[in-house]
């Protein structure tokens, strides 16, 4: 590939990505009342999407090979516990990530 072809490839990827982000806003213009089904999706989708994102983050964790997903499991449990106790986003994230870092870099290696 020459430089021009590379730039075309990058531009196409950028445009396609933008299309996925802009599509709902373009299709459902704000001046018309949105279809009821869309309103329902707007309410019901987000909780489901966050479930999907958690699975997406952990998709490559292998339960069959060492360390059997243990660091991820423990990390997630720490995040959940910290959040249930303090309900402070930063505390939960930093605490859970800290424990995970120690596990993967020092303990379960």
């Amino acid at each position: 590939m020459n430089l021009l072809e590379m730039i075309v490839m990058i531009a196409l990827v950028a445009l396609t990505t933008m299309a996925t982000r802009f599509a709902p806003f373009i299709i459902f213009k704000s001046d018309k009342a949105p279809p009821k089904f869309l309103g329902y999706l707007g309410r019901a989708l987000p909780p489901a999407v966050f479930g999907m994102l958690v699975v997406y983050c952990l998709k490559s964790v292998s339960l069959l090979a060492f360390p059997f997903g243990l660091p991820e499991l423990i990390g997630v449990v720490v995040v959940v516990c910290l959040h249930l106790i303090f309900r402070k986003m930063l505390v939960s994230i930093i605490g859970g990530t800290g424990v995970y870092l120690v596990l993967v870099n020092l303990v379960l290696i």
Partner: peptide
Amino acid sequence: GIDFAMTALFVVIL
């Protein structure tokens, strides 16, 4: 493993 912060973010929001 620093990117675990992203997983933690999504777990908190879930």
